[in-house]
Design a protein around this nucleic acid. Structure first.
Length: 878
RNA sequence: GGAGCGUUAGCUCAGCGGGAGAGCACCACGUUGACAUCGUGGGGGUCACAAGUUCAAUCCUUGUACGCUCCACCA
């Protein structure tokens, strides 16, 4: 016997472990069935999962479980990402609490510490993933730094280098002065910052004129190499070719003409600091300007500035310089301003453009086939509009800076000879051999100190996890993946790069056919969840409180395509209630002997006698179709909506209520009730895996788990011809009258139906016990004779119903009720009449639409007539 | 500056060329043996605004207003 309420805590772990231990999450590379592959975006090993993870893993799990049930050989490839910067920061912070820096430890010992932390953190994440029911093939789990994936990284680096697509270059990079590493453009975020716009007066050499430039960063004056004005700018034309003398510094720099200068902006004259500004760098290159670096790695002033500034932190230097400029009269107007300042997305400090040697990927070249693949439809974005975002970025892609001055990550497979000659090989041995050939003798090589951008290894995920560079069975079978499920925030970071690498290394084959971009989870006020805001909902807390099934269902129900998802607890609560509803429906069946150990074979529609059974089978069919279609087109919310309403509205509120009076005597009803429950447990399984397994086992006593059950197929036979809606309409109408009239529950009037044809009489008669129970009637009679005094009346379809309520009926209330109904029908009728009076409509609208409107108009008119005469009677009886 | 998205019931959101929907909240009645984590009934919306296309517009087009996001931008 089932307990009164469902208790998730005691059952979730049981069912999860049982299915995992039976190996039911595993793919089978030797299967004859078609594979279905999802590459799980590997979470960072930096702590714990948030609601965004819960969403993405739930959606993927729904897809995996659905396709597994459809008979596909499902591979959900899991794993974790080493997350270079993020992870190194976490461990460094932990060390800092003990007063240790990573340099104290040294590279090797530090990396050892990170590995230790990875083991611990990775365990937490895995625990969370399992808790929400993720049925990934955990045996195949990979880590971006494990041996095989590291091999893949080296292979890719070397091949791209030898193909000329990876190269070393000296150019401006985004330097993070806190983390002390270069970062890519994508890791820079612009933040609006309050600041000032200062005007600086630079005296023109050999003249009394000054040229005024404006800047938000006066300290970069130390690195100024020119002042640029627009070639067409009349104000400055006579000064082009002359020099100015930098205040304080005394260095002399030229005034140049360059169209980069914008006449409208500032004073129209702009200082050029080629070593510390991306635009200025380009200007400098055009004019052959030198680059003067004025910062050290901490963004403090270096030896290239006047001695009394050397060593000052950048903002201290700014203050000191402003004071000095003020004193010598070189400082002009100051304005408050708000401007965007580039910050490191991890460190949160302003980054400095800095001139350095770094390694780059020629992304523009790799992007070409990746763009074409989407253009030609080999990979499809869902929703499609994200393609535009993808194209936009890919078509303007910049060289990808892949080297990082970190310790945690894939060490760059590059060795330098004594004279700096570069050897790029997969192993030190190979590099040494190459060096020996080059030098003609054995030499000592130094490996590049840097590591690769985390996303470099992530980009290989779709094939590296399948054993590439080996030509494995798995690679052959599971690549390309069927769908990648992720949020739009990493289209650039990850999706685009997997496309590029996949196309290049997998013989032009895309890494996945579909990219489903889902919403981002926000809190109920629409704020992004973040630790600093304190609005983070921990998936584990919520599963503890409401059960994993409820959380999963909520996420699926709210996952409408491509929007923010505002999560609120009341919504989760409502789906927890939904689980309870299902539980209790099952409990009702159990109590009434509907469940036999043999399970429930499919009923044969031709042999059924009860209209309600045909009806529910038909509704089940419709629901199967809706859910299958919705999942296959990634409309998860529609799938959730379909099953929710089928279970609650159709199955519980109508079907079970209908069969209650006849259940004891009707084996047919017991059978169909059980069969439909068995089917809907399957339909719900991808969304609510735990409660469905529990009910399936308890009620149907089967050893076979739902996770491997066959997905229900809609049968063609069970189309509804029962006109059950006539009966539900009668019940609803009577309930409404009773409610409005405050008819006591104990009153069981006899319903009189007038004007019903034989077909309608048959339907009602077949359902009579149910109708009487649901509408609380003592009997139903068909009679066209006039209703007695004090009868509440209504009109449905083409017949009239009368509910004799002598002694109860309040004539004033009844009059008001009828008037309201008539008014509503008249409004509807006049709209329909207007439409049908329009010749354009009659001529051009599809015939089915015209017919439907005519039918509705007739129905409304009948209703108006019937209710109108009922109203006259009421008035007469008052 | 460039691009995209949104504006539908009190709140959060679906829908999307032919009868305005859900969940929650609200009001009334109700514990009749599956379920109060419930049942029944009800109230509540000129689908932001304007013009256009169409027989027909919440839905398509254009414009306006407001809000949001991404990209670019340290004069």
């Amino acid at each position: 016997m089932l307990e009164k309420t469902y208790d998730p805590q005691s059952l979730e772990r049981h069912w999860y472990e049982l299915s995992e231990n039976q190996g039911l999450f595993a793919c089978n590379p030797d299967a004859s069935s078609n594979p279905y592959t999802i590459m799980m975006p590997p979470p960072n090993v930096t702590g714990s999962l948030h609601m965004g993870h819960a969403l993405t893993f739930t959606l993927q799990d729904v897809l995996i479980r659905y396709h597994r049930m459809c008979g596909r050989d499902a591979l959900w490839q899991p794993g974790m990402d080493h997350a270079g910067i993020a992870t190194q920061m976490v461990v460094e912070r932990q060390l800092a609490e003990q007063g240790i820096s990573r340099r104290d430890l040294g590279r090797e010992a530090f990396v050892e510490k990170v590995w230790e932390w990875k083991e611990q953190s990775g365990g937490t994440i895995l625990h969370q993933q399992k808790h929400i029911g993720a049925s990934a093939d955990w045996q195949r789990s990979r880590f971006t730094m494990d041996e095989g994936l590291s091999e893949a990284v080296k292979k890719v680096f070397v091949r791209l280098y030898k193909d000329g697509l990876i190269y070393r270059d000296k150019r401006l990079i985004n330097w993070d002065p806190k983390l002390l590493t270069a970062i890519s453009d994508l890791e820079v975020e612009q933040r609006e910052v309050k600041g000032h716009m200062w005007q600086l007066h630079y005296p023109v050499e050999g003249s009394s004129e000054v040229i005024t430039v404006a800047t938000t960063r006066p300290e970069t004056m130390f690195g100024d190499m020119a002042v640029a004005v627009h070639p067409d700018d009349e104000r400055y034309r006579h000064l082009v070719g002359q020099n100015v003398c930098l205040p304080i510094v005394g260095r002399v720099i030229p005034i140049i003409a360059d169209s980069y200068s914008d006449m409208e902006k500032g004073t129209g004259a702009v200082k050029i600091t080629p070593a510390h500004d991306f635009n200025d760098f380009e200007v400098g290159r055009r004019h052959g300007l030198e680059l003067l670096n004025i910062f050290d790695q901490h963004a403090a002033m270096n030896e290239n500035v006047p001695a009394d500034y050397e060593g000052l932190e950048r903002f201290d230097a700014r203050r000191k310089l402003l004071a000095a400029l003020g004193e010598c009269g070189a400082l002009g107007d100051t304005e408050d301003t708000v401007h965007a300042v580039p910050h490191g997305d991890r460190s949160g400090v302003p980054v400095e453009p800095w001139l350095m040697d770094q390694w780059y990927v020629n992304a523009a070249e790799l992007a070409k086939p990746a763009i074409a693949a989407v253009r030609d439809g080999h990979t499809r974005f869902v929703p499609q509009r994200w393609e535009k975002t993808y194209f936009e970025w890919m078509e303007n892609i910049q060289p990808w800076c892949i080297s990082r001055q970190l310790w945690w990550g894939h060490r760059i497979p590059v060795w330098y000879g004594p004279d700096g000659t570069v050897f790029v090989e997969e192993t030190k041995e190979a590099a040494s051999a190459a060096a020996k050939t080059h030098y003609g003798r054995d030499v000592t090589l130094d490996q590049d100190e840097d590591v690769l951008d985390t996303w470099f290894s992530s980009a290989l995920w779709p094939f590296s996890t399948l054993g590439w560079p080996g030509r494995t069975k798995e690679l052959n079978r599971y690549y390309p993946g069927d769908v990648l499920v992720t949020g739009f925030d990493i289209i650039f970071f990850w999706v685009a790069r997997m496309m590029m690498m996949g196309m290049y290394f997998m013989d032009g084959k895309v890494p996945f056919r579909d990219v489903y971009i889902h919403a981002l989870v926000r809190d109920e006020f629409g704020q992004k969840m973040s630790k600093s805001k304190g609005n983070v909902l921990d998936p584990l807390d919520l599963t503890a409180k409401y059960g994993a099934d409820a959380l999963r269902f909520t996420l699926v129900a709210m996952a409408a395509q491509g929007r923010d998802l505002k999560l609120s607890e009341t919504r989760i609560e409502s789906y927890r209630n939904f689980a309870t509803k299902l539980w209790n429906a099952a409990r009702f069946l159990e109590m009434n002997g509907c469940i036999s150990d043999k399970g429930a074979p499919p009923p044969i529609p031709e042999t059924l006698h009860e209209p309600v059974n045909l009806w529910i089978l038909s509704e089940l069919n419709t629901t199967i179709r809706k859910i299958s279609t919705a999942i296959e087109s990634y409309r998860f919310n529609e799938a959730a909506d379909a099953i929710y309403h089928f279970v609650w509205d159709r199955y519980c509120d109508w079907y079970i209520e209908f069969i209650k009076p006849v259940l004891k005597d009707s084996a047919e009803c017991r059978h169909v009730a059980a069969y439909v429950l068995a089917q809907l447990l399957k339909l719900m399984h991808p969304f609510m895996p735990f409660i469905t397994e529990e009910l399936n086992a308890k009620l149907f006593g089967s050893d076979a788990l739902l996770i491997t059950a066959q997905w229900p197929v809609a049968s063609h036979q069970a189309d509804d011809n029962t006109n059950l809606h006539i009966v539900t309409d009668i019940v609803s109408e009577i309930r409404m009258i009773r409610a409005e009239m405050n008819v006591p529950l104990k009153a069981l009037p006899i319903l009189q139906i007038a004007g019903a044809d034989a077909r309608i009489q048959a339907v009602i008669t077949a359902m009579q016990p149910s109708v009487c129970r649901l509408a609380r009637l003592s009997d139903i009679v068909f009679s066209d004779s006039d209703f007695e005094k004090g009868t509440a009346r209504s009109s449905l379809h083409r017949f009239e119903i009368g509910l004799p309520l002598a002694g109860i009926l309040d004539f004033a209330v009844e009059k008001a009720r009828l008037e309201k109904e008539i008014k509503a029908s008249e409004a509807e009728a006049s709209k329909l009449a207007a439409k049908l009076g329009n010749e354009g409509f009659l001529a051009k609208a599809p015939p089915a639409v015209v017919a439907e409107n005519k039918r509705r108009l007739e129905q409304e008119n009948t209703r108006i007539d019937t209710l109108g005469s009922a109203l006259k009677r009421v008035i007469a009886e008052m």
